[in-house]
Design a binder for these strands. Structure first.
Lengths: 152, 152
DNA sequence: CGCGTATGGTCAAGTACCTTGACTATATTG
DNA sequence: CAATATAGTCAAGGTACTTGACCATACGCG
């Protein structure tokens, strides 16, 4: 016989995967922001800083940024406007498609990216020392599997 | 001899723990939203829905919500205003501290929480079937360890 | 006790971030 | 060479926060 749940009787589900993932993500982001601010990038915590980690050495298209970041194209455009105004990236015409623009780093942008990579490495090293190398790799693998499974 | 990095030479660090965590969190949230919307809670994707998962059966203080959610107290207040207006929660005086208010569910709120728990369970079951029970538990443990380590 | 300070919460005003809608220009398909 | 899709822009608006000023109750301590 299945026990019927009373309307007032529900589990205190205040701890679950989603919550733990959210906490971990928040903390990672906070540590990155703080590291970058400490390195002299005062706006590292602002939204446009998120763009940077998606721009590789060969540049990236705006439309590709839209896909990766899960925002509207107009939002991405505005973030890029800010980065261009700050002299972090440039919009260059795409040689393969004259509708498109290619987002590439300026020298200042490359410096910031370098700092960003250093901070990321430091955070990751901390993770490794907390979990151990083997478990860290297991974590990375599991996250990849979860993220790569087909939608619904 | 250490190789000196050229200014133009930097790694394409587009994949790292932070990115994977962010993706996993985003996806978890999206699946919860979609599940709840499908169950007839059209505003499940809005910000005030996030409050719900922090309210337990015995209620919670606003100030405690502030700590858990990492928002300003004014922001939390506004989210609660919305939930009160929708009849999901009530603000009751706290018997132990007459400055404080205790946020508790209404009957409608308990129904929504029940649906929310069901969707969360379904998502978690999906995680288990992707990773296997043992690895899922390892994931939960690792996230807990990362989140519980003392700040900096 | 009474005073200083910390805590819990409210009210008002502003801002950051992101959205939708309407549009232009180039590419691709048949 | 139309018809449709894709890359991006411009303008306006809304949501989800923030900061600042404030009130009320609790708590520590001479």
């Amino acid at each position: 016989m299945v026990k019927k749940l009373d309307e007032n009787d529900w589990p205190d589900a205040l701890d679950h995967v989603g919550w733990r993932l959210w906490q971990a993500t928040q903390r990672w982001k906070r540590e990155l922001d703080e590291g970058l601010v400490a390195m002299g990038h005062p706006w590292a915590a602002e939204a446009r800083a998120n763009v940077i980690m998606h721009v590789g050495r060969s540049g990236i298209r705006q439309s590709e940024l839209v896909r990766r970041m899960g925002l509207s194209k107009q939002a991405v455009q505005q973030l890029l406007d800010g980065l261009v105004a700050d002299g972090i990236v440039e919009r260059r015409p795409d040689p393969e498609d004259s509708r498109a623009r290619r987002i590439v780093f300026t020298a200042a942008g490359r410096r910031m990216l370098g700092d960003s990579n250093r901070v990321k490495k430091r955070i990751e090293d901390d993770y490794r020392s907390v979990l151990g190398e083997k478990r860290f790799r297991a974590l990375m693998d599991m996250l990849a599997e979860l993220n790569e499974r087909p939608p619904d």
